[in-house]
Amino acid sequence: MVILATNKIRKIYGELENDSYTIALDKVDLTINKGDFIAIMGPSGSGKSTLLNVLSGIDKPTSGEVTIAGEKLNDLSGDDLALFRRKQLGFVFQDFNLLDSLTVKENIILPMVLEKKSGNIINERVEELASLFGIETILQKYPYTISGGQQQRTAVSRALVNEPNIILADEPTGNLDSKSSEIIMECFEKVVNELSTTVLLVTHDVFAASYCHKVVFLKDGSVHSSITRSGRRKAFLEQIIDCQAVLGGRNSVF
């Protein structure tokens, strides 16, 4: 079942008449099915963040269409778009994006509170997610007292709390050490395998990408190539490193 589809989206920054414009995305076609676990990779400036912003409706494409769960994002605007986002999409950010004044639990339940869900449902959901990601013991703590990995797991829980169709993550391991990255990627695996939620993430980190089922490479705003994982993670990792070399991006950290 197709969850997300794009149809020749272009994103141009600046005025076309001027010389100073940038084509950040150039006719990108992307189809994502339910339960997919996809990484988007590419050199810096290749348009990864722009793509994610367009997919989530934060940015409007210059032309082309984005369809999520049958709904055309172009048709939505303002508050409707915000409502759609919080019901259908979950976000995970590089800098976690947690509110300092709220506890871990409060941060997680925030999207449900906005949806005016009842207290019981909220509490049940938090317990479920917290035990899934191993953060039961820190629920009453404040974000600045827990580790980056724990903060990101909190953010993942928050992204999932409203049972979205798809989770979008921009460099979710960008601020984490390798051990925490591993834990986060395992969390995403659980999201896909146990909750059968679709995950789309943008990353520079080949190691993180190797957890995914498919990697799409962007170059200069368009899809350059994509590879699908068929066997073990280790082999997939090698494959990704090779592709990156072909792409001419920076080399792996290994």
Partner: peptide, 11 residues
């Protein structure tokens, strides 16, 4: 931050 997780303008 709140807008990113879907807080509407009205809210």
């Amino acid at each position: 931050k709140l807008t990113k997780i879907g807080l509407t303008g009205h809210e």
